[in-house]
Amino acid sequence: MEYRVRIDEQVYPLVATSMDDKGRCTMGPAGEPEPVVIKVVSSNHVRLEIQGRARSIFAARSDDGTWIWCDGRARVVKDADLEERRKSRAPGATAREITPPTPASVVRILVETGDRVAKGQGIVTVSAMKMEMTLTAPYSGTVTAINTSIGAQVSPGEILAEIAPDDEGDGNE
């Protein structure tokens, strides 16, 4: 089997042969697979022995990929081939939107519709787990809409305020 495994920005092409009844197979980068032994401990736990050194790997699947744990490091690991097949939309320009980084509640709205705002100016303050953070204008412009209210529970991706940029040619794109 060939796999293209992605961790954040990095893709690791790997090849693996099927396991025999003792869990023995070869696995590794194309062209240099090594003999390994895979022991299934539970549905979330495999023991991976590579050249006499065994590592415990814990795994849990989610909609965003599989969370893999190895010696204190957690990584969200994805099947890049599967991802490409599923790819439905280009990554949005999220950095240009006023949206909370984490589920939060709105504590203050610092601007009104029609206000002129400068890049970096505070727009909305949200609180998550008792910690406050202020979402700032990603570019200068005019506030065209406030889509939230004080006390509202909001999630990442939810656009809390809309800003029409001053000038299309400000080179931010």
């Binding site: 495994v5 396991m19 980068p29 991976l48 893999i68």
Partner: peptide, 22 residues
């Protein structure tokens, strides 16, 4: 984070994929 062992995590992922069908 140190990315030095990400390749091992990738192999761990493949091992889990191979083992999971059981």
């Amino acid at each position: 984070p140190d990315r030095g062992e990400d390749a091992l995590a990738a192999m761990g992922f493949v091992a889990h994929e191979m083992a999971a069908p059981s």
